[in-house]
Simulated scan of single mutants.
Amino acid sequence: MSDDNKIIRMANQIATFFHSQPADERPGGVATHINKFWEPRMRRQLFDLVDNHGGEGLDGLVLEAVPLIHRPVPQMDAPIGLA
């Protein structure tokens, strides 16, 4: 299974749980879970799917939550050394 497929599957599983919650709590619940438990690399992959592929395969609730998810700081090409 590709990394994209894993991210899609995991995000959609979170959304499946939150579909059982009150409607006004759903997007915030998905975003809070992802912000708390996903490392920056995983959130980068999620934003790559949304930004470059339109979120194809993601549950609509995940897409509603995207504006509430913390976008990780872009990775730098090389670490900065201390002088």
Results as ranks from 00 to 15, higher is better:
Ala65Asp: 03
Asn35His: 06
Ser2Lys: 09
Phe18Gly: 02
Asp77Thr: 10
Met42Asp: 10
Ala23Val: 12
Ile14His: 05
Gln75Phe: 05
Ile7Gln: 06
Pro27His: 01
Gln45His: 04
Ala23Met: 05
Leu68Thr: 04
Leu82Tyr: 07
Arg71Pro: 08
Asn12Asp: 09
Gln45Cys: 02
Val73Ser: 09
Val62His: 02
Lys36Gly: 09
Gln21Phe: 09
Phe18Glu: 07
Phe37Lys: 13
Pro22Leu: 09
Pro40Gly: 13
Ser20Pro: 00
Gln13Glu: 13
His33Lys: 06
Gln13Lys: 13
Trp38Thr: 08
His19Arg: 12
Asp3Ile: 08
Asp48Asn: 10
Thr16Val: 11
Ile14Leu: 13
Ala11Pro: 08
Gly55Leu: 04
Asp59Val: 07
Asn5Val: 12
Thr32Leu: 11
His19Gln: 04
Pro22Lys: 14
Ile34Cys: 06
Gly55Cys: 04
Gly57Trp: 07
Phe47Asp: 10
Met10Glu: 15
Lys6Arg: 15
Pro22Trp: 08
Asn52Asp: 13
Lys36Pro: 00
Gly57Tyr: 08
Asp4Thr: 09
Ala83Phe: 04
Ile7Ala: 12
Ile69Val: 15
Lys6Cys: 06
Val66Ala: 08
Gln75Lys: 14
Trp38Lys: 04
Leu58Gln: 05
Glu56Asp: 14
Pro22Ala: 13
Pro74Ile: 01
Ile69His: 00
Ile34Ser: 06
Glu56Ala: 15
Ala23Asp: 10
Ala23His: 05
Thr32Ser: 14
Gly57Thr: 05
His33Asp: 02
Glu56Ser: 12
Pro27Met: 02
Arg44Met: 12
Pro74Lys: 05
Phe17Gln: 07
Asp4Gly: 07
Val73Cys: 04
Ala83Leu: 06
Arg44Gln: 14
Pro74Ala: 10
Asn5Glu: 15
Phe17His: 12
Gln21Pro: 00
Gln75Val: 11
Gly54Asn: 06
Ile69Arg: 01
Leu63Gly: 01
Gly60Ala: 12
Ile7Thr: 15
Ala78Ile: 11
Val73Lys: 15
Asn52Arg: 13
Ala65Ile: 07
Trp38Ala: 03
Ala65Pro: 07
Gly60Glu: 13
Ala31Lys: 01
Ile14Ser: 09
Val30Thr: 06
Leu82Asp: 07
Ala23Pro: 03
Arg43His: 11
Asp59Arg: 05
Val30Gly: 05
Ile80Asn: 03
Arg44Ile: 09
Arg41Ser: 11
His70Gly: 02
Glu39Asn: 04
Asp48Pro: 00
Val50Leu: 02
His19Ser: 01
Asp48Arg: 15
Ala83Ser: 07
Arg71Gly: 09
Gln21Ala: 13
Thr16Ile: 09
Arg43Phe: 11
Gln75Asp: 10
Gln75Glu: 14
Leu82Met: 09
Gly81Tyr: 11
Glu25Arg: 15
Phe47Cys: 12
Trp38Leu: 05
Pro27Glu: 00
Ile34Asp: 03
Pro74Leu: 01
Phe37Trp: 12
Gln13Ile: 11
Glu25Ala: 12
Leu49Phe: 05
Met76Cys: 04
Ile8Asn: 02
Ile7Val: 15
Pro40Phe: 12
Ile8Ser: 03
Asp48Ser: 13
Gly60Asn: 11
Ile8Arg: 10
Asp24Ser: 10
Asp59Glu: 08
Arg43Met: 10
Ala31Asp: 02
Glu56Met: 08
His53Arg: 15
His70Lys: 14
Glu39Leu: 10
Gly55Ile: 06
Val62Met: 02
